[in-house]
Simulated scan of single mutants.
Amino acid sequence: MQRRPLLALAGLAPFAPAVLRAQEANWPARPVSMIVPFVAGGPSDIVARAASQRMAQTIGQPVVAENRPGANGEVAARVVMRAAPDGHTLMVGSIGVWAINAALRPNLSYDPVRDFTPLTLAVTNPNVLVVNTEKHPTTDVPGLIEWLKGRRGAASYSTSGVGSSDQLTTELFKLRTGTEITHVPYTGGAAAATDLIAGNVDISFQNLGTVSGHIAGGRLRALMVTGERRHPTLPNVPTAAECGLQDFVVTSWQAFMAPPNMAAPLRDRVAGALRDALMQPEVKTRLEGIGFDVIANPPEEYSRFQQAEIARWREVVQRANITAG
């Protein structure tokens, strides 16, 4: 009687690797869920939907983008970290989800390195400082700084959430310029941009992919970009350095991850399908047209990049004394 459970467990020992091999060989056996941790319309959502449409054609199964916003990605991350590592649940997240949260929030309920399997760094792009074209009087950064100082803390800025790159970018802007601006967080970049257009907040540092259409449509005015050089889609908009702000280069990014402990052969198949989708001419052209730089690198390369970003932002958070509150 006592030996029966041990024999049962022993019988299962060779079964687990066989199951894993079968999963790898049969992937995808059903539709793939691509979890997006923000509301529809933001950069994570844009990248997810662009990749999912092309990926579905390649793998022969539907790839469905699902928006699960909340806590700057934490809600979605908890779902994915508990999912089976069988390639049918993936997640695309921002620099905030995969790097800044770890640097900013000591009680984070997930570890962006340990609790996920890296797949690929999808895209990068700078943030852009924008104001409402009709409701804001300033047309350049010196004028904005003067206006903000005259407001004496009454001005506000919108972001895609607490711990997002746009929040940290604005906090660094405050430190560099000696201004006071009240943080108004939203559940994604699209919502942050919408309220700026409505005139409910004064400024925002948004991901270029989120606001490029609004800039082109005249609803938002771009004052500067946070890249090392001017961006091809905004050739007349100066960099932070050109505006007199040194050491102010911030590149936002989006990356794909899977649940933890995914077998390396399956990881490589899934990552390869994602990279192939991102590099297809129609997808790459679409993403580049709204300000993204498509990277689509291998899992190991992305993993090294992610860990370097976590270390970088942890140093920034500590030096600037930025808290999640």
Results as ranks from 00 to 15, higher is better:
47 V>D: 06
104 L>W: 07
265 P>S: 11
315 E>I: 06
273 A>K: 05
159 T>H: 04
179 T>F: 04
10 A>R: 15
18 A>R: 01
197 I>K: 14
152 R>G: 01
224 M>N: 08
287 L>I: 04
231 H>K: 00
315 E>M: 10
139 T>F: 11
122 A>H: 07
160 S>Y: 07
294 V>I: 08
106 P>M: 05
276 D>Q: 14
292 F>L: 05
42 G>F: 11
47 V>L: 02
296 A>Q: 02
220 L>T: 06
285 T>N: 14
180 E>A: 10
197 I>T: 11
81 M>L: 11
224 M>W: 02
78 R>C: 00
248 F>C: 01
177 T>P: 05
169 T>F: 03
80 V>D: 03
108 L>G: 09
278 L>G: 10
231 H>P: 05
236 N>D: 15
152 R>Y: 01
279 M>F: 00
267 R>M: 10
52 S>A: 15
109 S>V: 12
99 A>Q: 03
261 N>I: 02
15 F>C: 14
293 D>E: 14
132 N>C: 07
94 S>R: 05
7 L>C: 09
258 A>L: 08
146 E>H: 14
110 Y>E: 08
40 A>R: 13
206 Q>L: 15
8 A>R: 12
89 T>E: 13
221 R>H: 09
288 E>S: 10
115 D>T: 06
18 A>T: 02
136 H>N: 10
219 R>K: 12
278 L>W: 07
25 A>L: 15
